[in-house]
Design a protein around this nucleic acid. Structure first.
Lengths: 213, 213
DNA sequence: TGCATATTGTGAAATGAGTAACGCTGTGAT
DNA sequence: ATCACAGCGTTACTCATTTCACAATATGCA
């Protein structure tokens, strides 16, 4: 299916919210309810659910479990895939601690660091290898996704080595824009830029009209 | 000026790149050069620079310093603004370490944590206060921006207390969607969702045509 | 049973972001 | 001095995404 980036983003958020609702005992939702929770219009929600192939009923809404099922069919890898984390500083540890075990068919299979204090140890349940063994390790533990949390100066090289080892998607937290072959999907996360944006819009919003989201 | 979110994002990225070029001794760029570096069309770059009020010259391009100056006028707060960080775990420390001192007129003025092991100390140059003193502290150290890196269960409450204390922009790393009055600009960063998206597009791209970005 | 009502499903319109295209301008070569 | 040309500034257009609007439909109640 050819779907847009924003669509995947929303759908992932739907699933998180729907799981929460389900855990609280709710079994059905209306499009306008989910829309209000996500800050979207009901039409947007209906259209997305339609794209997913979900079908609701007037006066009962959508069955939450069924929607979660459809989203999982779309988002979750059909078979197990590995994640490699390059750089196990504070940020890397934070992500490991938070994300470990949260995905279906997607788990951390190796971490890499250049610091001998860290290598050879198990960090948050995942073995940490020295940087120079990356190619070797990735032969026996193939990974689909790489997460880069090394300093800017080491990011491009790390990315190229991951790509050469067969990684097809990279989340980059280092403050540089990675240059990689097009078949590798790269998501650059610029935390500095994030703060600049929020500071800007916080200011521009200060003088605007009040109200609630 | 009424500008779009994407515009601010691009402009922030331009500045980062232009500063790097400047530090390497380059003083002028063509729109197509900057575009290639950022993965954008030259038309997009020219249009953005036009919006910023920059003017270039055919056969010499744009003066990098002048563009940086214009971007800074737009993005940087006109006077000093404070940032508060709520939650000083791995993620909080990572952001503090990386972002401290990188902004013009924007600096960390307080951090908060509920762990008595951390409170009372100076972390990455910034004082850490106990959570319950937030209101009191923010009276003497007014802040414009808040960063939330607490667990999901504490995020909404933290956000409301920040908002009540006058914060006008929040970056939320906790995996919940914050519900706040509209005058507070909220940017939710969902790291789980990020990984799901990258995993999805990595898969969908695997069978596509090759080529370079 | 049949009506009233609230919500779904979806074509059509509106919005908005990005691209193409082209006249204009300044530079360097002849 | 004139010409050729490469890139800027800007307008018009294209295309994707979102919203509008309404017929279709399922439920509850009289």
């Amino acid at each position: 299916m050819e779907v847009s980036y924003r669509f995947v983003e929303r759908v992932s958020a739907y699933r998180r919210m729907l799981r929460k609702l389900l855990s609280e005992g709710t079994t059905r939702v209306y499009s306008y309810e989910l829309g209000a929770l996500e800050g979207l219009s009901s039409a947007q929600v209906r259209r997305d659910l339609m794209t997913l192939g979900c079908t609701g009923s007037p006066s009962k809404g959508y069955d939450i479990s069924a929607v979660i099922e459809k989203i999982s069919e779309l988002l979750d890898p059909p078979a197990g895939e590995g994640i490699a984390m390059v750089g196990v500083g504070h940020l890397g540890k934070a992500i490991l601690a938070y994300a470990t075990g949260r995905f279906a068919n997607l788990c951390f299979s190796a971490t890499f660091d250049s610091d001998p204090e860290k290598t050879g140890k198990i960090i948050h349940g995942c073995h940490c290898f020295p940087m120079q063994e990356m190619e070797e390790v990735l032969k026996t533990r193939p990974v689909a996704i790489g997460i880069i949390t090394v300093p800017a100066s080491a990011a491009q090289e790390s990315a190229e080595r991951l790509a050469a080892a067969g990684v097809r998607g990279i989340v980059n937290f280092a403050p540089v824009r990675l240059r990689l072959p097009r078949e590798v999907f790269v998501e650059d996360v610029d935390i500095t830029g994030l703060l600049e944006k929020v500071a800007f819009f916080a200011r521009s919003r200060t003088q605007e009209g009040e109200g609630w989201t």
